[in-house]
Structure formats: C-alpha cells, structure tokens
Nucleic acid binder design. Structure first.
Lengths: 161, 161
DNA sequence: CCATGTTATATAACATGTTACAGTTTTAGG
DNA sequence: CCTAAAACTGTAACATGTTATATAACATGG
C-alpha cells in the first residue's frame, strides 16, 4: 500500500511531520510506563521548561514552549489537579499567574531526568544517528527506522554499545 | 525567551516535529484561503489519496495515510457531509465501505492541483532547499525560516526566480 | 482621577489525533 | 454445516492543538 504522504513529498510535509511526531510521542509514552506518576509524554516539555527556567507566568511558559496560551492554561490546570504544579498570583501584577513545580513535580522531574530522559535521548539519538542528506530522505529513514525497531527496543541496543 | 523544545534536542523531538508540522499546516491553510471550497488543509491528504489511488475502503485509506481507522472514518463523514466524497457499500463484502471522490470532490482536487499545490510545493521546497546536515539543525533552520518569512511570502520569492 | 486602550488569562467551540470497544460480516476448522 | 475466530467499520471517550472572545487588572493621557 503506497504511503501517500511520503509520495507527496514537500506538499504534505506538515502532515508528515505531525505524523512522525505523534509516533515518536507514542513510542516515548511506552518507555515512560515504568515511571510511577501518570503523565502523558506531551506534558513533559512543560515540566522540563519549569525545571529549566524556574517559575514562569502562563504567557511566558507558552512562549518558551512555542504553543498558544490557551493550550498552556489547560495543561497547567490538569497538572495542577494531579499536584505536579501550582499556580500563584503574582504580587506585583494581579493579572499574572505564576506556575511552578510543586515538590512532587520536582521529584517527578528529578526521577525522569535520572531514569527516563537519558534513555529516551539515547534511543532517539540512535534512531537519528548517521542520518544525513535532504530532509525528506532523513524523514523516510526515521519512519523506516521506527517501523523496524520502536524506541523501546533501541534502549538496550544503545546501552549495549 | 529560551525555546525549550529546541534546547532539549532529541529528548523532545516528537513534540518539536508536531509543532513544526502544525505551523506548516497553518501557513498552508492561509495559502489555500483563495480556494472556493472550505476544507482544512489537513483534509487534503485524504482527498489526494483518493485522487492518486482511486476509490478505497476505509481501512486501506487509513493505511495509505498512516493514520488510524477511526480518524479516517470521521474525516470521511465530514467530507461526505459537504459533498466532496461518497461512501458506498462494497458488493462482494458487506463490511467494507468504499470511499470515492464525488464529481465536486474531483473538481476541487483538480483545481487545487492546478492552482494551489504547485505553489505550496514550491514554497515548502524553497523553505527546505539548501538544507543539509544533522536533522536537528535542519529543523532549526526550518523554524527560523518560517519565522523570517511565512510560506505565503515564499511563493512570490520562488516564482520570481 | 477617570475613561480608554493594552495586557494577561480563562473559556468556549472546534479540529483532529489517539485507544478501547461494540456490532456486523466473513472465514475457517472440526 | 455450524460455531468460533478474524476482519471491517463505527462510536465513545479522551488528549491536546487551534482561533475567537470575554474578563479582569494595569497603564496612560487628558
């Protein structure tokens, strides 16, 4: 069965990037399943941003993640519900609501940094290592690589070296 | 403001690919606004698949697009509602429902093939042309390129050559 | 000092992806 | 043949992105 997105090349590059991204996230999700707390893999960038940059108001958090503010508002609500982040009104400007990691959130990030992120990074690096040439060819190689061996299988492989 | 996804490199490659894909689709959407019929840019791959491969049952359509079957079922319902595709039960196998372009759908595809797709393809090619090297660097170049000049602006540029 | 514009956030409505599961047909094995 | 498994599709529930808009707080110019 012909892969239409691949055949269409540059015309559907956006759809194709989204598709690859979703597959990577799904694979990553599977690798995170060992971790105690139940967070979707797509939430980790937000947690990582707070870990890297410290407490941030909603708008700046959105900017640092490159998504729109309503998306961040919702993610923050969800993460606050499960106690990983907290939101406090800024003193100087009552409009701004500053988001920060709770101690539980920080613990999760620390655990992920120690146990999960290095393995994910190695697996993805393994997938993308040795790629060169035009973008479309690299994307095809990534798709083929994921089909041949999902990320989870690449951890051992990378660790074995 | 630091771009966290970019800083995290391979770790958040999935999120980053999705983000770039969404931006490309949004840019593409803007370029399609001249076209008479109101279809989201993300629906064009489905129409293009039917145009390339002819009528297909839902499952094969999903496979050729690399998405799951429920996603295709919904898209097909929407496109059928606005009269661009039609669904007929297969004679030989009552389970299969074969999707095909209506004459209106074919007209839209033909118009897009003539007026829009070549321009989109040129704009994206312009964006990605001259890229080489590691994937992460190419992605950064794409993001920078889109920020500097959205796709719509690249049509004239590419046409001027 | 107040009317008005700007900024920061939340909310609503939608788009479109996913997984899990239900309901038909079809197929195949004894 | 008939039953049980497999295949195909639809539906439900959710995740998470978007745009558009409302609301509250701040800033500013007369």
């Amino acid at each position: 069965m012909e892969d239409v997105l691949r055949s269409l090349g540059y015309l559907c590059l956006g759809s194709r990037l989204k598709r690859i991204g979703e597959q990577l996230q799904a694979d990553t999700q599977r690798m995170l399943e060992g971790l105690e707390v139940r967070v979707q893999s797509s939430q980790y960038p937000l947690l990582a941003a707070l870990d890297r940059l410290g407490p941030l108001p909603v708008g700046e958090l959105a900017q640092s993640l490159g998504v729109t503010q309503p998306g961040v508002t919702r993610s923050v609500s969800l993460l606050a519900d499960i106690g990983l982040v907290e939101v406090i009104q800024a003193n100087d400007d009552q409009r701004r609501r500053v988001v920060s990691l709770t101690s539980g959130g920080q613990q999760l990030v620390d655990a992920a940094k120690r146990d999960a992120w290095p393995r994910i990074e190695r697996a993805v690096a393994d997938l993308c290592s040795g790629l060169s040439g035009p973008l479309l060819e690299q994307l095809a190689a990534i798709e083929d690589g994921l089909a041949a061996a999902p990320l989870a299988r690449r951890v051992e492989k990378a660790a074995a070296r």
